[in-house]
Design a binder for these strands. Structure first.
Length: 582
DNA sequence: GCCGTTTTCGGCCCGACTGTTTTCAGTCG
């Protein structure tokens, strides 16, 4: 784990313990906020720890947090963290992770029923003791049992590519319900995060009861978690939670904004509203008319804006920004809506496999699929010899393959087929073919496939070496991570970006939803530095071309514009860039 | 704990649903 990740974990746990002991909510929030900042940071925080001013210059990190960060970098420990942990039984944090069990309940169960861990909780659940506690009844205990059973088999967050398919099916299902008007997904899915905690669906309808009932009874629902007039929650058999919000047509824009988030983006928006004498909630942007028991929409107050997102941003003197950048990472400071890359901008696929290695397509099938997608160029980039498991090509087989690609390119009209390779980067940075052979290829994608647990320094050296190789065009899936399965490498991203800039090499966003590598914050850093980005699907089958949209949203989360994306270039520009390395 | 183009002190975002209660605390997003 990197220093940033370790410190993020520490601040997160501190915020959890502070909740348990009933500390000031704003202090709790400040710790959680620092954890978030550290998690999203590209720079190794250890490099800033020589001067507290460098740390406090970061919005959200104050003197207190800076001191703790420096202490950790110097000693490997944070005294206050250890003291906080010692102040409670360690197992309590596990108990608090159970859905439905918050700090107040856990504290109560600890002090009044001696529950200190998941093990003691399980023991006491059937004792009848818990029901006797204040505000605890049979139903609550039953819910805890159910949550506990679910938590035991619950997996991680759902990957974007799986959540998206699921959400689209639900949207389609609900659209068919009588009275349904607009149905769409919001939340982290609309923002295009690489993994999704739960799926948020918004609907406008002339018949709220019908759509809510249909939602709670739809195929695949395992348990109804909440069933209100405007909000329903279900858990699917796959373990994914889905929330439905029934929205009034007049406040659809406010609801979209609110339920799209991010939470931090929303907090900043609401703070801006207050400074303007307004207040923002999921029903609209209202004039602040002082203290009342009821919120403005219930008192018939006319909103300043509510129907569209655009109107609300405008009323706050902000420009509308795409959902993918709503992370409080500078998007509220822009003067005009950024022209981020879109699916239709992509005109070339530069990383794809055929039956020569581990793909399922022939060269012809690959070419026809790429042509059908409207591309001017496709590169055949099968695995190199060291990728035994993927049937990587020996130099002899690669030369034959190059000939086959050249022949297909002559024969098939309407698309340019390039001969390439996805070359393994060895642990020391050497490539899997000699330079003479590499020079015969039109496109070289260099990717790490093995030694994916090497330390950060070695990984950085390895990838910088590959990026600096004069015959390499693109660094493929730079970290080698597999979401929810494998962490991959932790190279110094800034070093990679500098090498990419210096040698005019592109960094890949691998659009396969299991990879999405580079990830969003890496893309943002690369884009800010002016590096070139490739978005490739790494297609092994025709269907895999559909992964492109996941790469696009990841790119958009990193503020990528078409100009900086080599796959969006014209044929002439792309080919001349490729040839410049030959 | 963090922050300040009104502030170095005094603020800090908002609402739905559940379960256990007779009016609301706790949890969640």
């Amino acid at each position: 784990m990197s220093t940033n990740a370790e410190l993020s974990h520490i601040f997160n746990e501190m915020s959890k313990v502070l909740q348990l002991i009933g500390a000031n909510p704003f202090r709790i929030n400040a710790h959680a906020n620092v954890a978030r900042i550290l998690k999203d940071m590209i720079v190794d925080v250890a490099e800033l720890a020589d001067d507290p001013a460098k740390l406090t210059a970061i919005d959200g990190i104050g003197a207190g947090s800076a001191k703790k960060i420096i202490e950790f970098v110097q000693t490997g420990k944070v005294k206050e963290y250890e003291e906080l942990l010692d102040s409670i039984p360690r197992g309590l944090l596990d108990v608090m992770a159970i859905p439905g069990l918050g700090p107040k309940t856990v504290k109560l169960m600890w002090e009044k029923a001696g529950i200190t861990s998941l093990a003691t909780l399980k023991k006491k659940l059937n004792s009848g003791q818990l029901e006797k506690l204040p505000r605890m009844g049979a139903k609550t205990v039953a819910n805890i049992k159910e949550s506990l059973a679910f938590a035991a088999k619950a997996s991680q967050r759902t990957r974007l590519g799986e959540a998206m398919i699921l959400a689209e099916a639900i949207v389609e299902f609900l659209t068919m319900v009588k009275g349904a008007n607009r149905v769409e997904y919001a939340g982290s899915l609309r923002r295009g995060l690489d993994t999704i905690g739960d799926i948020d669906i918004l609907a406008t309808t002339t018949n709220p009861a019908a759509i809510s009932t249909a939602f709670r009874a739809m195929p695949g629902v395992q348990k109804v978690l909440a069933a209100g007039e405007t909000k329903s929650s279900v858990r699917l058999e796959s373990g994914v939670q889905v929330d439905l919000r029934v929205i009034d047509e007049q406040s659809f824009g406010a609801a979209r904004m609110y339920f799209t988030g991010s939470k931090q983006h929303n907090v900043v928006l609401r703070e801006r509203a207050i400074k303007k004498g307004l207040r923002l909630n999921e029903y609209g942007l209202f004039p602040d008319d002082g203290e009342h028991d009821e919120p403005p929409q219930k008192r018939g107050v006319k909103p300043v804006a509510a129907k569209t997102e655009q109107a609300i941003y405008a009323a706050l003197d902000l420009v509308w920004v795409p959902p993918e950048v709503r992370e409080d990472r500078g998007e509220l400071d822009v003067r005009e809506t950024p022209k981020l890359i879109e699916l239709d901008d992509i005109k070339a696929e530069l990383h794809a496999h055929t039956i020569a290695s581990d793909g399922k397509m022939t060269i012809d099938e690959l070419a026809h699929e790429a042509k059908a997608r409207g591309f001017h160029t496709v590169a055949v980039t099968d695995h190199s010899r060291s990728s035994i498991q993927a049937n990587g090509l020996s130099p002899k087989r690669l030369r034959e393959h190059i000939d086959a690609v050249r022949e297909a390119n002559e024969r098939i009209k309407g698309i340019t087929i390039l001969a390439g390779s996805e070359v393994d980067i060895h642990a020391d940075g050497r490539l899997d073919y000699d330079d003479k052979l590499l020079a015969e290829l039109d496109v070289v994608i260099a990717s790490p496939h093995s030694a994916l647990r090497q330390d950060a320094k070695a990984a950085t050296r390895r990838l910088v070496t590959a990026l600096s190789h004069p015959l390499v065009h693109v660094l493929g899936h730079p970290t080698g991570r597999l979401i929810n399965k494998r962490e991959g490498l932790h190279p110094d991203l800034n070093a990679l970006i500098q090498a990419a800039l210096e040698h005019d090499t592109a960094l890949e966003i691998n659009a396969n939803y299991q990879r999405l590598d580079l990830r969003d914050i890496h893309v943002k850093a690369a884009v800010d530095a002016g590096a070139l980005i490739a978005i490739n699907t790494d297609a092994h089958t025709p269907d895999n071309f559909d992964f492109l949209r996941y790469g696009i949203v990841t790119a958009r989360r990193g503020w990528l514009t078409p100009k900086q994306c080599i796959n969006a270039w014209t044929k002439q520009k792309l080919h001349s860039w490729l040839r410049a390395k030959r």
